[in-house]
Design a binder for these strands. Structure first.
Lengths: 340, 340
DNA sequence: CTGTTAGCGCCTTCAA
DNA sequence: TTGAAGGCGCTAACAG
């Protein structure tokens, strides 16, 4: 009954006699034995763990991704460790403002110390590509939902062009002419979205100038931005918002101002998050296939672990979930009627 | 320049000459050296890491707790590792239904393999006290937001009596007589809430029978339960819901049925979550001090690490956030007028 | 099928 | 202030 025999028995290796294994397993259970992950990864030179740094852990969007990651990890015999990439740094209202200190690189470094077999990141701060590529040279890296195309690390993103085309075609079909975008594209996680809006407008609404109202990502931001538009009397008939939170904030601003959604203004959100179904009207929104996002990320990590060396970029296809925040507005109706 | 000298220099131990340390640190940076957490914890017999199993990672409530945990952990020189205690097991609509497979014990076991110095749990499944106490004998354990009083592990919860008293006194002050509770108390995380409602009613509304309408925790559950009450024509004038989601669902059901909140019905939510501000009216709700929850949990863990052996239970004091979903209803107004 | 040997990378004595 | 030796708990060869 040597140490190594026990080790093999407990890990379920085949070359152990059945009876022996049973006795070993029984003894281990009786003694409350629990393997030491550190020692194991030290000796095996492989941790059987994958790590994730997800900044918006407070965001339900990532929650569902986490669930699918966990499922996929388990199916591959891996444990999934998570670290948060931010902490709060004030005491503002979580949902309406944001006072978040990013520490994504620190979290990534920490995770690397655990000698994880691969890492997925869902980031929110201003990171640079080079830093991420440096990380990727240490452990396989998959960037999720981020507008980086690297030749070094893998990426799983959403096909933003499809997303924005779906949204704008939907609104065009309802007769809307003037379709504005509410959001900003200063960070890698959102840049692509704004660019896709501009392309989609050019394609589907040629001749009409695209309009982007800069706005951060939370409900309070959408609310404030819309308030100033309402005051300036510049309310468009249709809006595509960069997140559901922003869309929800806009809806609240409109409702307060006596405007109806969708009768006066149509709004499309983005993410199909809790915001979309928390409150009225339920939001029409662009849905990112969250489960696929998690499952694909794990798959890419596992492939790397098995030796794949060429970089892989996966574009997930979003869909439009049509709910109650879009419709034919008064002004849009007029447009429809006078169309050829 | 021995291994041990390098080790000491990098850990910032005092007994190293300044010049030597600088050269070592520089060399380490140049070589891209990164300590191996597993080896380190193996040799030091202490991991400087604390772990958390939080089931509702998809719930924004815990997101803010995570942020405060991270902050407190960093201040104490610890890393915080997270594992999810559930994964999705169907393909239902995430926000409206729940198809979650709990695997909390597995997650806890995994974390223990990392020989973490302490662990916090925020659980949703049906766990039993004994199992948790067994865990607590292996590593310091803090149970968060759960209705277990153990003499073995520490607990940080909310003073549910205060919470329900605040809610019911608020409603009584508005003239409401009949105050029903919408929720269930079958799990340790929610049991205390129902019990507190019953006590608070006895205390503040003696003579009026408490009424509990069983209802799970999500928005869809609140919506469905209210629908059937509306159909049965049993709508009370005041409701305390077990979560904001449930409250929001109830609001939607009422609005659809042509009833006004708060004119016809007053509703109080619980958690001050995204649901509370995701629509109109904004919900009056009970707020759990989330940052304190995280910070206190870490503090307890650190204290245990420093040798505290007596069990500690911390009750956080909740507050009532008064917004727009509570008011004097038609029926309640009548009650107010006829009171002595 | 089972045992032996040699580390994995780091920290902790203890000695210099 | 620095170095050498030993071992943390485990797995990976290699022998038997």
């Amino acid at each position: 009954m040597s140490k190594s025999l026990v080790s093999r028995a407990l890990r379920g290796e085949p070359a152990v006699a059945d009876g022996t294994r049973q006795r070993i397993v029984a003894a281990a259970a009786a003694l409350g034995y629990r393997p030491n992950a550190g020692a194991r990864s030290l000796a095996a030179r492989r941790s059987n763990a994958i790590g994730f740094v997800i900044t918006g852990l407070f965001d339900p969007f990532w929650g569902e991704v986490v669930h699918s990651i966990d499922r996929a990890a388990e199916q591959n015999g891996l444990s999934a460790l998570y670290m948060s990439g931010a902490f709060d740094s004030g005491d503002s209202d979580m949902w309406l403002d944001r006072f978040v200190a990013y520490r994504e690189m620190e979290a990534i470094e920490r995770l690397l110390e655990y000698r994880i077999d691969g890492m997925g990141v869902g980031l929110g701060g201003h990171l640079d590509l080079e830093e991420l590529e440096e990380i990727a040279s240490v452990a396989p890296l998959v960037a999720m939902m981020i507008d980086y195309r690297s030749s070094v690390f893998d990426t799983v993103t959403v096909d933003e062009d499809t997303a924005l085309n779906l949204a704008i075609e939907h609104l065009r079909g309802l007769g809307h002419e003037q379709i504005v975008f509410l959001g900003e594209g200063t960070r890698p996680a959102t840049r692509a979205r704004v660019a896709a809006y501009l392309r989609a407008m050019e394609q589907a609404a040629a001749g009409i100038d695209p309009v982007v109202y800069p706005c951060a990502l939370l409900q309070g931001d959408g609310y404030e931005t819309m308030r100033s538009l309402i005051e300036a009397d510049q309310v468009p008939t249709a809006i595509v918002a960069i997140t559901d939170g922003v869309a929800r904030g806009a809806v609240i601003a409109f409702t307060e101002a006596g405007l109806s959604v969708p009768d006066d203004v149509s709004i499309i959100g983005y993410d199909d998050s809790m915001h979309a179904v928390a409150g009225q009207p339920l939001l029409t929104t662009i849905r990112v296939p969250r489960r696929e996002l998690g499952a694909t990320t794990v798959r890419l990590l596992v492939e790397r672990r098995n030796g794949r060396s060429i970089t892989s970029t996966v574009m997930l296809r979003p869909s439009l979930v049509v709910r109650d925040s879009t419709g034919v507005s008064t002004r849009a109706r007029r447009n429809l009627a006078t169309r050829p």
